[in-house]
């Protein structure tokens, strides 16, 4: 039995004819902060539900916190599902103490609830009924219910969906704080930028299969697009690409913004210097690959180039898409 927080080997799950997860291997070492990314319907939630023993795999084996199933270590795991809600008619305090009780917290429950409500900036809601809270407030209550028992492993499925930017930052800080405390955190998102801001390790899932599993730094090194972005002063056109040694092609990415793709062996700094020398520019920068670029590139490679990039990109950015309920149809 592995001592990793999560150990998955050859995991598979199908619903009728639809394959949700196929031959998935995954190791999440203790103390790490893993991001599970991929578009909607990729199999993230199904994987997480199998880890949580809410669904049972058709194939493969897994261990959670050194136990064969999460059932045996549920009280040591915090889980914020994507499909989440509260008992509408229950008081916030009663709901949280019910959840704490279910997770085996027996001492200082009331104090812990007060502390947490304070920290998520909802100090006065304890006596309120859950349905008096806004959706974002309810989400913070749900987050508390996933951490109130001080878990060793925290699994968050789309934790940011439906939050405004202020609360998104608040939640991000709380997640990082758990990570700093030594809690293993794994969270899923279809909005790549969130994973980029938070994780040190990325696992990318597409159509039920793992397509990437690496640290953020290594991913960036490997998927370096080798291009520079430049924005000439108004009225000045881009200098012809051929004038710069090492430039393969230039394309306009948005009005007044150009991207120059470089040859593999080109010296990027020399090209940048050369561009600055010949064109008055507001901005010249080395482009960092985003997870989005990486994902699109991987999808393209896998499908042999037959991909609608714009649609894929829209799916990975719009948080509203994440608000959809995912449907599991057998």
């Amino acid at each position: 039995m592995s001592d990793d927080a999560i150990f998955i080997q050859g995991l598979g799950k199908r619903f009728g004819a639809k394959i949700a997860v196929e031959d998935l291997d995954l190791v999440v070492p203790r103390g790490s902060l893993h991001g599970l990314i991929g578009p909607n319907g990729a199999g993230k939630t199904t994987t997480i539900r199998m880890v949580m023993s809410i669904l049972f795999p058709d194939a493969g084996r897994l261990s959670v916190l050194g136990k064969k199933s999460a059932v045996e270590s549920k009280d040591r795991i915090g889980y914020l599902p994507e499909e989440r809600g509260v008992y509408r008619k229950m008081k916030v305090g009663a709901f949280l103490s019910h959840m704490a009780g279910l997770k085996g917290v027996t001492s200082n429950v009331s104090k812990k609830i007060d502390d947490w409500l304070e920290r998520v900036e909802l100090p006065d809601v304890k006596k309120k009924r859950c349905d008096e809270l806004s959706k974002g407030m309810q989400q913070k209550i749900q987050f508390i219910s996933s951490v109130i028992h001080e878990p060793e492993l925290l699994i968050l499925d789309e934790p940011f969906s439906g939050l405004d930017p202020v609360n998104m930052r608040l939640l991000r800080d709380l997640i990082l704080e758990q990570h700093t405390k030594g809690v293993t955190v794994i969270f899923s998102t279809h909005v790549m930028i969130q994973a980029e801001q938070l994780c040190d390790h990325i696992v990318m899932i597409e159509s039920g299969q793992k397509v990437l599993d690496n640290t953020l730094q290594e991913i960036r090194d490997r998927y370096d697009p080798k291009s520079i972005v430049f924005e000439p002063d108004a009225g000045v056109g881009p200098s012809p690409a051929e004038r710069h040694a090492g430039v393969e092609s230039v394309r306009q990415v948005s009005p007044g913004v150009f991207e120059a793709a470089l040859h593999d062996d080109a010296d990027r700094h020399a090209v940048m210097a050369s561009v600055l020398e010949q064109t008055r520019a507001r901005r010249v920068e080395l482009r960092r690959p985003t997870l989005e670029d990486v994902f699109i590139e991987i999808v393209e490679q896998r499908s042999g180039g037959d991909v609608d990039r714009d649609e894929l990109r829209a799916q990975l950015q719009d948080p509203a898409v994440g608000a959809d309920t995912s449907e599991v149809t057998p």
């Binding site: 889980y79 599902p81 499909e83 989440r84 279910l102």
Partner: peptide
């Protein structure tokens, strides 16, 4: 009310 999966994180 979608509370069920939260419950399932604590009970089978």
């Amino acid at each position: 009310s979608r509370v069920v999966e939260i419950l399932l994180s604590a009970v089978s």
